[in-house]
């Protein structure tokens, strides 16, 4: 049996968001902790794409930073069964993630020079040109500065830079959210092609379920720092198990069958500093009952094979039965 390339177990990350010490003393305010990631586990198999999807503040980007080592976990384990040098990251904003004072050639060569400082200059130049062509730019673009490129082209440069280290594993944090749809399509197609050709594994973070459906093999839906549901993509769309997933699927505008007269679900994501007791989704959940307010549901083997953390799903309660 193949081993997962990434194993994440009971991962936690807390941030101290307390007021400054003096204010705490004078105004008698307690310390406050934000649990950005609160007991998350998942595995990714080599060559696959796992997507983390959820609304802002659900902790998906924090996981990207934990996996790449930009944050240290407060608890739990991350095991990467590969060469740590073979992990790279693509960020959301192609305007902020490229040094505006460096030429594209230097930007793309940076991982190469850091990981293999002994590489002769001529070889680096040749490799950079090859990488630029791989992502659909021309070798001559190496001499230009980032500001000479459009958003989509810049994201291609980010991808070329990530590929320079010959990675096995790419963490992509909202790689197309800042792009127009026609440009997004170009970048998504490129990422799929590269995955096919190079056998890359992606941890793909997005708030957009239609993008995720197109890219991912497995989707993990997050809500307030926890995975509420994790399923292979086809199963998630055919049979969403968690009420929050159903709500998300219900609210996305759908081009093919616009829900022009739907009644949108009320409520908003609560503050992660003071999450609701029990299941943090219970105040918005149409299926919530007493137990949901008291206890926190876990993903369990006997409930849909650890695919969902929900008491209602465990008891197979239906929305239609609920008045």
């Amino acid at each position: 049996m193949t081993r997962p390339i990434l194993e994440v177990d009971a991962l936690e990350r807390r941030f101290d968001v307390s007021a400054p010490w003096l204010n705490r003393v004078l105004e008698r305010k307690p310390r406050r902790t934000l649990r950005a990631v609160d007991g998350v586990d998942f595995d990714i198999m080599p060559g696959q794409t796992l997507a983390l999807v959820g609304e802002s503040g659900c902790g998906k980007s924090t996981i990207a930073k934990l996996v790449t080592g930009l944050h240290a976990p407060s608890g739990g384990k991350i095991r990467f069964n590969g060469d740590p040098e073979k992990m790279q990251m693509i960020f959301q904003d192609p305007f902020a993630s490229l040094n505006p004072r460096w030429r594209v050639g230097r930007i793309v060569a940076e991982p190469l020079r850091t990981l293999h400082p002994e590489t002769p200059d001529a070889q680096v130049t040749a490799r950079v040109e090859e990488l630029l062509r791989t992502v659909g730019l021309s070798g001559a673009d190496a001499a230009k500065f980032p500001h000479e490129f459009s958003g989509g082209q810049r994201q291609r440069i980010s991808i070329a830079r990530a590929l320079a280290g010959e990675p096995e594993f790419l963490v992509c944090d909202e790689p197309t959210s800042a792009l127009d749809v026609s440009v997004q399509a170009q970048v998504l197609n490129l990422m799929k092609k590269l995955q096919r050709e190079m056998g890359l594994t992606y941890l793909f973070i997005s708030h957009d379920l239609s993008v995720v459906r197109h890219m991912a093999d497995v989707i993990a839906v997050m809500y307030l720092g926890r995975i509420v549901e994790i399923q292979p993509t086809g199963d998630l769309f055919a049979n969403p198990l968690h009420p929050y997933t159903r709500m998300l699927l219900d609210t996305i505008p759908d081009l093919e069958s616009p829900k022009r007269d739907r009644a949108p679900m009320g409520g908003e994501v609560p503050s992660p500093v003071s999450p609701p007791s029990g299941c943090s989704f219970h105040p918005r959940c149409p299926l919530a009952f007493d137990r949901c307010k008291r206890e926190r549901p876990q993903r369990e083997v006997h409930v849909h094979d650890r695919r969902v953390a929900c008491f209602a799903a465990a008891e197979d309660r239906q929305e239609s039965a609920h008045v």
Partner: peptide, 16 residues
């Protein structure tokens, strides 16, 4: 064509 579909599996998105 470049918008990913919520219903259909698309091998590749249409590109302009």
């Amino acid at each position: 064509g470049s918008i990913p579909s919520l219903r259909k599996d698309m091998h590749e998105l249409q590109m302009i």
